[in-house]
Simulated scan of single mutants.
Amino acid sequence: MSPSTSTDTRRRALVTGASGGIGAAIARELAALGVDLVLTARRRDALDAVAASCEGVKVEIVTADLGKPDAARALWEATIAGGPIDILINNAGFGYFRRFDEVDWARDAELIQLNMTSLVALTRCFVDAHKTSTQPANIVNIASTGAYQSVPNMALYAASKAFVRNFSEALHDEHRGTPLSVTCICPGGTETAFHAASGGGDYSWIANASTKSAEFVAHAAIRAMLRGKRTVVPGFFNKVSCFGVRFLTRRFASRVATQVLGKPRFELPARRGI
């Protein structure tokens, strides 16, 4: 089920949160496979830079703020105006590293909208578009190792990623044996701007040792997608921690997460997003 490089059958992918980090790296991975791209995020200048690095394929840019209600539907309509979408990469998302009661509701509402509601809305658009299709169709949803347990100081973020994981795995099973495949990727710490934007803590050596590059995660994600995998945790250390947590009580696992992630920084940066 590898993407074709024929101009007549070339596949087309929508990548959200494509202005940096994992999204940008996935865009380059897909471009290397000959997949045409629609890149979306809030920052046009950053998207232009990513588009320039995706050589040999057609790249379109649609700026959108998926943290706003109804933005997903508008994005989908703008995207399919240029042709059908065969691959959907739901990567856009953000989190913060703070006690839940120390953050204003507006930021929480945006997190819920971006990490869950818009992801579900785009997924619904994609699934509806492929109900009668006999051609391969792929969804990749980016979750987190935080999807495997509660994470103090990232309570809402981790909960949103648990939602993404459960939602993705159920969709994968619903569509087993059909041309539509759903893959969930659960990265651990990744070398992106996420940590600075979230006001990340003074991470322990364990957290730092398990951190991977965005390129590593992107390569694992696309390889898993092409193989029709259900859920993939990139990185050996991350795999071990996600497997091992099932042998701990939930309370103890939560306390371990607190030790691994350290304390929040003094100031939470203003929300910028991707």
Rank of each mutant, 00 (worst) to 15 (best):
M1V: 13
T5D: 07
G17V: 10
A24W: 06
A24V: 05
I26S: 01
L33R: 14
G34A: 13
G34V: 13
V35R: 13
V35H: 11
V38S: 05
R42I: 11
A46P: 03
A51V: 02
E55I: 12
K58M: 07
G67N: 10
K68D: 07
A72Y: 11
R73A: 07
R73C: 00
A74W: 01
E77P: 00
D86H: 14
I87L: 12
L88M: 04
N91D: 11
G93S: 12
G93A: 13
Y96G: 01
F100Y: 15
E102F: 02
A106Y: 03
D108N: 14
D108I: 06
N115E: 12
S118A: 15
L119H: 05
V120P: 00
T123Y: 04
D128A: 06
A129Y: 00
A129C: 00
S133A: 09
T134S: 13
N138V: 02
N141M: 10
N141S: 14
A143I: 07
A143P: 01
G146T: 12
G146D: 14
V151F: 12
V151M: 11
P152H: 11
Y157S: 08
A158M: 07
A158N: 08
A159P: 02
A162E: 08
N166R: 09
F167S: 01
S168L: 02
L171A: 08
L171D: 07
D173N: 06
E174N: 10
H175R: 09
S181T: 14
S181R: 15
C186S: 14
P187K: 14
G188C: 06
G189K: 01
A193C: 00
F194G: 02
F194M: 05
H195R: 09
S198G: 10
G200V: 03
G200A: 12
D202I: 00
I206C: 01
A207I: 09
A214C: 01
F216L: 02
V217D: 06
I222V: 15
R223C: 02
G228E: 04
G228L: 02
T231S: 09
V232A: 03
F236T: 10
F237D: 05
F237S: 12
N238W: 12
N238K: 11
V245Q: 15
L248V: 05
R255M: 11
G262A: 00
P269K: 13
P269E: 10
A270L: 13
R271F: 15
R272V: 15
